[in-house]
Every structure is written in C-alpha cells, then in structure tokens.
Write a protein that binds this DNA or RNA. Sequence first.
DNA 1: TTCCAACCCGTAGACTCGCTACGTATGAAG
DNA 2: CTTCATACGTAGCGAGTCTACGGGTTGGAA
Lengths: 112, 112
Amino acid sequence: MKPDVLRGHLDALLLATLDGRRLHGYAIIEALQLRSGGALDLPTGTVYPALRRLERAGYVSSEWSTVSGRQRRTYHLTKAGQRALVQERTAWREFTAAIEGVLGEGPWPAQA
Amino acid sequence: MKPDVLRGHLDALLLATLDGRRLHGYAIIEALQLRSGGALDLPTGTVYPALRRLERAGYVSSEWSTVSGRQRRTYHLTKAGQRALVQERTAWREFTAAIEGVLGEGPWPAQA
DNA sequence: TTCCAACCCGTAGACTCGCTACGTATGAAG
DNA sequence: CTTCATACGTAGCGAGTCTACGGGTTGGAA
C-alpha cells in the first residue's frame, strides 16, 4: 500500500478504533492490524503524533497508568470526538462515492 | 472535502478519466466534476503538474493541437498506463476494504 | 468598442502530515 | 545477559496537493 493514500483518513481510523473502547497507543496499532486484515501496519511514528494531535484538537483524552511496571497512556473519545467520528464516517462515504463515480467501469455511464 | 484525502488517489482518477478517451487538461477537470457529481473540483495547479508527472512516468502521452486558435495538449493512455490503471483499481479496492474494516460499525465484530 | 467570462496552458512556493530513523525503558524468556 | 515483545516518544525528511500567480485567445454582453 502506497504511503500517501492514508492522508486525511488517519483521524477517522483512530477515532473509529477508540469508539466505545479505551486503548493505549500500542494496542491501537494492533487493533488496526487486526481489523484491517493485516493491511494496516502503522509505525509508532505515525500513530503517536496523530494521537497527540487529536488530543490537542479535543477529540480524545488520555490518562497515564502503570501496568506491571510499564507506563501506558490510555486514550478515549470525548464528546467532540464522537461527533467528529460521525462526520468522518459521512466524509468517507462521500469521498468513496466521488472516487467510484470516476473509477467506475467503462468510458462513460451517460453522456450528459 | 479536506484537501489531503485525494493524496495518492489522483493518479487513479486521471488514468480512469483517460480510459478509452483522448482529452485535454481542461476537459479532464470538467469530466472529473461531472463524474463525481460535483464533489471533485480540482484546481489546474493540481491537475497539470500531475499529468506531466504521469507523462514522465510513461503512463500517458500527449500531443499539441490547435482548436479554433486555442492551443490544447491532448492526453491519452499508453499501454503502461492501461496496466497502471488496472493496478490502481485493485489498490483502490484493497484500500477501501482495509478502511471499512476499521470504520465498520460497532466496537468489535469478533473478539479474537 | 470595451469589457468580462469562459476557455486553455503553465510554474513557484507553501504547507501538511505520514514515514523513516532514532532514542529510551521495562519484563520475560532463553 | 542477551534478545525479543511491550510501550512511549521526537526530529527531520519527502512527496504531493493547493494557493496564487501569470500568459494568452475567443465570443458575447454592455
């Protein structure tokens, strides 16, 4: 998978992963792998900065906890994050509809 | 529509638009608008450099022609471009499958 | 006949953001 | 005591889309 195709969709992915769950960064990466059937294997250098960005934006919130000597920062969605997720899902549908209208088979569906 | 979501998908869009057609840049932009139901309104500063990139890559080829005093550069797919388009469509399906596996409803489909 | 919209091409530079490469640390297994 | 999985993070790069220009023609409206 080309690297750039993720551009602009990562936020949606992270928000969706946190929908109804509390996860720490590392677990988010694993969840993404699992849910995408292995297609999405995001490096930490992609995910951690993105989570901080979402936190600055007020879409997620986090707390530190120590589990068996390991520091982990657990994230969860805020109310604003929930709303953002709804919008992201809508934007995704619009996006795919637009692309598929073009990619869709054959020269021309209807000659307007 | 956020600007970045197009990232990495523009080539597929352009190749698909030229599939079985000879079009000049301006016409490509209009075709994209039409086929996407108005969702895709790409600026010339996006399309022209992208077309030149595709031409350098050998996926499209172009000739100049003069239509009623106007210079236009008409593009068409090469053999390599045809093959690239097939790959782009496959990549698109894989991409959407991966994203939708994550965005898809609810907390978890199956707790592995 | 003057003006403006539509047509048509193009480049320079900014900006964004995912990725590479790196650094730190703990716990368990070998 | 070394190595691997777990777990966090940053700095800087790179690629590609967008903004903002600039150039030129045609045709119709005012």
